[in-house]
Simulated assay, not measured.
Amino acid sequence: MNTEESKSSEVIFFRIKKARKENWKKICRERNISLTRLIVDSVENRIMDDERRKVIRFIEKQDNIFSKIETNINQVAKMVNGQKYISESQLEVFSRQLKEIEILKARQNRIFENIYALLSK
């Protein structure tokens, strides 16, 4: 929290049953977030910090998967360049795989656009 926010922060008191408060605190411990963040993000319908961390891990995992695919493509290209030949059937299989990667990458980009929209709230 920056100093401007802390200067203008307000305290709100409200009553809830002890069991509900304990349940909320348990949720916060499990998600590794503060009770304030849980309440504010819930009221403002924002993505929670723990969910944001999961999204970032997902994005990193996707990036690693596509890095491996790119490495495999480069290995095939190196092999073909060295042999100066690729059979018709190998080329067809490789082309299908590239098309599938193109489809997956487009789907991933749409997912990322949705994720970034959620994260910006």
Rank of each mutant, 00 (worst) to 15 (best):
E5D: 06
S9F: 09
I16Y: 07
A19Y: 11
R20L: 03
K21W: 04
E22D: 04
E22H: 04
E22F: 01
I27H: 00
R31Y: 01
S34T: 11
T36R: 11
R37M: 06
L38N: 01
V40T: 10
V40E: 02
D41T: 05
I47F: 10
M48D: 03
M48T: 07
R52G: 03
R53W: 00
K54C: 00
I56Y: 07
I59N: 03
I59D: 00
F66Q: 09
K68V: 10
E70Y: 13
E70Q: 11
N72T: 12
I73N: 07
I73A: 08
N74Y: 10
Q75C: 03
V76E: 01
A77Q: 12
K78T: 12
Y85T: 12
I86G: 01
E88V: 15
S89I: 15
S89E: 15
Q90G: 10
E92N: 14
V93G: 03
R96G: 02
R96K: 14
Q97P: 02
Q97S: 03
Q97T: 05
L98E: 05
R107A: 09
Q108H: 08
Q108E: 09
Q108V: 01
N109C: 08
R110F: 02
I111R: 04
N114L: 08
A117Q: 14
A117C: 11
L119Q: 11
L119R: 03
L119I: 14
S120R: 13
S120D: 12
